[in-house]
Design a protein around this nucleic acid. Structure first.
Lengths: 192, 192
DNA sequence: TCGCTTGTCTAGCGGTGCTAGGATCGGGTC
DNA sequence: GACCCGATCCTAGCACCGCTAGACAAGCGA
């Protein structure tokens, strides 16, 4: 049994190595540079090894996306829990979200822009994605306002954050006004 | 001169054919299906002909994006001008924007998701993109509220619309609530 | 020590964007 | 009307992509 366990452990280690390498490469040079050949060389194995862990490149992107979603959910929760009162909580949440997107652009792309073969808002939606939504809902639900469904409100708020994150990334908006935009969004959307 | 004019005309016709074909193919089968070989076959020329019109595939995507931006600006203006009062105008604008994104997903992707080599919010930003922003600004500027810069407000509103369009596309949100989300966005963001 | 399973690599397939270089066609000139 | 020459287009091929079949070797249990 010990042999099998060691092999399983080594396999799991290598899988983590693949994902960490893919992520690092993507953040350094963009997802276009994450080719199976390049990735294989960096982990010092041949290409087919990748396919013994993942069905293909999309599944690798999907795995990175799930990791990222987990981190995003955690970042949002940490920020929200450190703030007092609904207003501070929502502001902190928005900042944390946009900060995550800005600091991990490739991972953010993996989650929302690229095709990682992930199902959204369905029965078979992976847990990390549902949890990321839940993390937003926890803080946003309390400022939805009377008569507004918390889920619907969260979707709209999330959409707005996503739009800001995306447009900032494209260099569309001068970074020095990020804070103002965030404040405007919170002031107007949230019922405090 | 007549000969040269005829050649110029034929060249311009062919360029339009390339763009129309690329767009049609993208809407039918997605941008992944728009390969230079497939595109060349559809216009009944060989691949290198494409490169006598455009530097490469990105530039073709960029050209489709500019066409699309022009149409988007026009759609927004038409919708806004047909409405009475700020509130109706903003609502009509939001609906027109989301409707355009839903009806022309591939073109919308070309503008905002794909790399068409376009510069945003800079000195060398193509006119159609600046004009699309201007079209939004015309109607949104009047509901920015006191003390809020119209441009900043437009950016935030645009970001929210973009987020809604994107997440709808990914099947993240049930289409039957699109109208509610739009209303919520207008009610909260705009100062009426 | 042997046989076998398991795991890894080499080599290659069909596809991609893009381009060099040869063929061909057509207009301008004598 | 014949010829030349430049513009125009196509064939063929490059390097790269994601992915896989089949040969090979290493390490396990008997």
């Amino acid at each position: 049994m010990s042999v099998q366990e060691r092999k399983d452990r080594e396999r799991a280690d290598r899988e983590r190595l693949i994902l960490a390498t893919a992520r690092e490469l993507a953040e350094q040079q963009g997802w276009d540079a994450v080719t199976t050949r390049q990735l294989a060389e960096r982990i010092e194995y041949s290409q087919p090894v990748l396919y013994s862990h993942f069905r293909g490149k999309r599944e690798i992107i999907g795995a990175v996306a799930l990791e990222g979603a987990t981190e995003l959910a955690a970042a949002v929760r940490v920020a929200a829990s450190a703030a007092d009162g609904p207003r501070a909580r929502v502001t902190a949440l928005a900042r944390a979200y946009l900060d995550f997107a800005a600091r991990n652009p490739a991972v953010y792309d993996a989650i929302f822009q690229l095709d990682g073969g992930l199902a959204f808002a369905q029965a078979d939606t992976p847990e990390p994605l549902k949890d990321a939504f839940a993390a937003l809902l926890e803080s946003l639900g309390e400022v939805a306002g009377d008569g507004v469904h918390p889920g619907l409100f969260t979707e709209v708020f999330w959409a707005a954050l996503h739009g800001l994150a995306t447009l900032s990334r494209a260099g569309r908006q001068p970074p020095e006004y990020t804070e103002q935009r965030t404040q405007l969004l919170v002031d107007r959307l949230a019922v405090l």
